[in-house]
């Protein structure tokens, strides 16, 4: 299990990185923490000609809060995400989800930006940024653009990132009054990819829930919002009957495929269980 040969470059600036990407086109792959990329290379599932290691780009580092926005540099590791006081305050969903990602040694190298750009449909963080309505900052030769998380994830390992572009940071609105989030997943073993994971974010007004976003990972080719279920509960008090109703409608939102760990039917069922548990916990949090 040795990777096919490749070349390696470690640019010191974004400008240099763009030049490398321009020069190699499709044959180049960006390398950040490498925790998703290197297994695929070791298994020879892909064979890029060159890896462009962006880990020296200081512009991609750091966590800060400014103007009501939490800004997380793309090179932030899962360990840093989990430990950050800013993240815990402004976007606790991310910290909670990060603790479900693999294991300490992987979290120490795996990066926030890498996870989003890799866009594994079973990964936790893509679902979270979608639930939090985050905005992704993408740099390219022509400058920097921002893309809503909702427009970023196109499909299986496919994103809005174009050739020569680099995801540099993620901006998340700081948790506003009344908003709460919740996260849970069903994985066979701690640290495994989930059979279904749910990232939820919404505003509570007493018993009632508003502006709820329910985003599932592990059930489709990309993170997917359960909009029918969201609408079912909009503005209502979270009761057992309401949850049952929302769970029953989940089939309108999700159509999971079979994989070796669970059938689509099983994933849909587990997604319903998660809906009930996560929403109950969120609703119960104010009591």
């Amino acid at each position: 299990m040795k990777p096919a040969p490749f070349d390696y470059a470690k640019p010191a600036s974004l400008e240099e990185a763009f030049s490398l990407l321009d020069g190699h086109g499709e044959d180049a792959r960006l390398l950040a923490g490498g925790q998703s990329l290197l297994p695929t290379l070791n298994m020879r599932l892909s064979a890029p000609a060159i890896l462009v290691d962006i880990s020296a780009l200081e512009a991609l580092r750091g966590i800060s809060i400014d103007n009501g926005m939490l800004r997380i540099g793309a090179l932030t590791t899962h360990t840093e995400l989990k430990a950050s006081k800013e993240v815990a305050r402004a976007a606790p969903l991310l910290a909670e989800a990060a603790s479900h990602i693999a294991h300490p040694a992987v979290r120490n190298r795996g990066t926030f930006g890498g996870s989003l750009a890799h866009a594994d449909p079973a990964a936790e963080l893509p679902a979270c940024v979608l639930a939090l309505d985050a905005s992704l900052e993408i740099a390219g030769r022509g400058g920097t653009r921002k893309v809503a998380a909702a427009d970023f994830f196109h499909g299986l390992f496919e994103t809005d990132l174009g050739p020569g572009e680099i995801l540099t940071a993620v901006e998340v609105p700081v948790l506003r009054k009344g908003f709460r989030s919740g996260f849970a997943e069903f994985a066979r073993r701690s640290g495994d990819f989930a059979m279904s994971a749910l990232a939820a974010h919404g505003r509570f007004d007493g018993e009632r829930v508003h502006e709820l976003r329910l985003v599932y990972a592990g059930v489709d080719i990309r993170p997917v919002r359960a909009q029918t279920a969201e609408q079912t509960v909009e503005g209502k008090a979270v009761t057992a009957d309401l949850l049952a109703d929302a769970m029953a409608r989940l089939g309108d939102d999700l159509d999971p495929m079979d994989d070796p760990h669970a059938s689509g039917v099983m994933k849909l069922h587990l997604s319903g269980v998660l809906l009930g548990r996560v929403l109950s916990a969120m609703a119960g949090a104010h009591r």
Binding site: Y8, K10, L31, G34, Q35, L38, P39, N42, L51, D53, S55, A105, V106, N108, R109
Partner: peptide, 10 residues
Amino acid sequence: VRGCLTLAVQ
């Protein structure tokens, strides 16, 4: 870190 998921050049 995982020694198999880190390149020597890194």
